[in-house]
């Protein structure tokens, strides 16, 4: 049995030449964390996470609830800083640049985020997409119109909303609202997009649309997605990281994680033995 597993594993690695193993530093990496620890007050939520997010690919983070995957995601654009008494230790590099040295609004323009629950602003569809551009000072009227259209097209929403750009964003369905939030994040041309369980509140059809969208987007934008849904990770992700109790147990090509994981915990989780 054990020999079987190891041959399979070798096979899988052979099949995908140049797959970055943890910490995968040799491929071009968009985001690299080194020995990242994170605290909510005195509670240590992340223990020494070292992970490289490969450029132009989809990286999925899986693991049971409370394992720290969302917390990890929120360190990548320093979104955790909105929560009092939180602290991150260790290094994070964005394109080899110290992420903690980047000015906050510039960082968040470069690393966009879409949340678990769609959170359109109480504004029109147009104003929602234009928000990031306006906040960042790209308020030229002609280019604004163009950028909004382009972002909505990239989020595969344009055809559905082009005739009602000035209606309330709340007139859209749940799935459309989530795609609107993706369009809003894309409008400022981020280099990376963080998706925090973007489909957990959506039905299967809306989920399929978002997944299709993710596969399209990865050509232009590095994507990190946190998901509870292992099938989703298997469908969309090139790489998958498994988190457990604040530790990164394993990080590898998605196929390997799901077919021949190196760690017992990973195998137990992906085969549904716990979690």
């Amino acid at each position: 049995m054990s020999t079987n597993v190891s041959t399979l594993q070798n096979l899988a690695i052979d099949m995908q030449k140049g797959v970055p193993m943890k910490p995968a530093a040799e491929t071009s990496a968009k985001l690299v964390t080194t020995d990242l620890n994170f605290y909510y007050g005195k509670f240590k939520a992340l223990h020494g996470i070292s992970l490289s997010v490969p450029t132009g690919a989809v990286t999925a983070l899986i693991g049971p609830s409370g394992c720290g995957k969302s917390t990890f995601l929120r360190t990548l654009n320093r979104m955790y800083e909105t929560v009092p008494l939180t602290r991150a230790e260790g290094a994070i590099l964005l394109d080899n640049e110290d992420l903690f040295a980047i000015e906050l609004s510039a960082l968040r323009r470069r690393v966009g985020m879409v949340f678990q629950r769609s959170n359109p602003f109480p504004k029109s569809i147009f104003d929602n997409v234009a928000y990031g551009l306006r906040v960042n000072g790209f308020a030229n009227k002609a280019t604004l119109q163009e950028s909004v259209e382009q972002s909505l097209r990239r989020a595969a929403l344009w055809d559905e909303v082009k005739d009602k750009l000035h209606e309330s964003a709340y007139s859209l369905s749940g799935g459309q609202q989530q795609r609107l939030c993706i369009a809003r994040a894309l409008a400022v041309n981020p280099e990376a997009l963080l998706l925090d369980e973007p489909c957990s509140a959506l039905d299967p059809i809306a989920t399929a649309k978002i997944e299709e969208l993710i596969l399209h987007l990865k050509r232009t934008c590095t994507i990190v997605i946190v998901t509870h849904n292992m099938q989703q990770a298997a469908r969309v992700a090139d790489y998958t990281g498994f988190f457990l109790l604040g530790k990164l147990i394993e990080f590898n090509a998605t196929k390997i994680i799901f077919q021949t994981p190196a760690q017992k915990e990973t195998e137990d989780y992906v085969t549904g033995r716990f979690g």
């Binding site: 979104m79 906050l104 609004s105 510039a106 968040r108 985020m113 949340f115 959170n119 906040v135």
Partner: peptide, 9 residues
């Protein structure tokens, strides 16, 4: 958070 994630202070 949505607003701040887009770079708003």
């Amino acid at each position: 958070e949505g607003a701040m994630a887009l770079g708003a202070t």
